[in-house]
Amino acid sequence: MPANRFNGFTQYGVGVGLRIPHYDEILSRRPVVDWFEIISENYMVDGGNALATLDRILEQYRVVQHGVSLYFGSAQRLNDDHLRRLKALTRRTGTPWVSDHLCWGSVDGTYSHDLLPLPYTWEAVERTAQQIRHAQQELELPILVENVSSYAEFHDSEMTEWEFLNEVVERADCGILLDVNNIYVSSWNHDFDPMTYVNAIDPARVGQIHIAGHSRFEKYRLDTHDHPVLDPVWKLYARAIERVGHTATLLEWDDRIPPFDELHSEALKANRWLASAPQSPIAAPENRHAAA
């Protein structure tokens, strides 16, 4: 869907992550970029260079916030200080939506700083949806929840990951940030067909798509964001766009970061599929509901 209530009815095109090694080039050369995604936590501070640079970026570019440590799936309540600072930053950036991950990462006030996988249980569905609803109310902005790469599965799981995602977003009434690289990585690690995942997602809730590269090890795939997008991921992206339509797309590249033009060129490859994207979603999700 080109613009929907989950992405603030925007048409954002192809963006890239704003990263420190590119600050000087972006500010001096002012390349044409549809939008930048920032990691919210890097700018939730009270002063200094990060905020000053962000303000200069905001003078020229559209910025969307993506978070890494709200942890909607934590069994305990969200961190109020985090939410307060996040809200203050959204006022500064004017982001039309806020995204974070379908995961947990802290318990009893101790933080892992990782995107830890959830058991796909009804208890986790209820808890996660409740936290997203709470965050959405506090932030007064649409929230997109992103599927993560995972390397572990739980004995307790009662449904597939895509069933879990659909249940959470429906109960939370939030959007999806569909990361097709994460789907690929998890599918390889857990032996499922990634196309089944893409075909099962409710297209009407997808407000943004992530593409990225990953690393291949003998026994698993790792979401490293340090490579160009691989062909199997582009295939999933093509199918996602076919189902969802022209959707804000972002290339994630966080390690071994190449020169800005190289990174941006990699992101713009997405236009090959976006150019022929349908204007509206085409299919109802398949096998959307898990058995209760």
């Binding site: 990782d114 830890l116 058991p119 390397y151 572990a152 599965e153 739980f154 004995h155 307790d156 799981s157 690690n189 857990h190 032996d191 026994k219 698993y220 790792l222």
Partner: peptide, 17 residues
């Protein structure tokens, strides 16, 4: 609490994290 996979056992999966 983790399931073993086809290529990695439960300990190895937790080991990645």
């Amino acid at each position: 609490y983790l399931r073993p996979g086809r290529r990695l056992n439960a300990h190895e999966r937790l080991g990645i994290y």
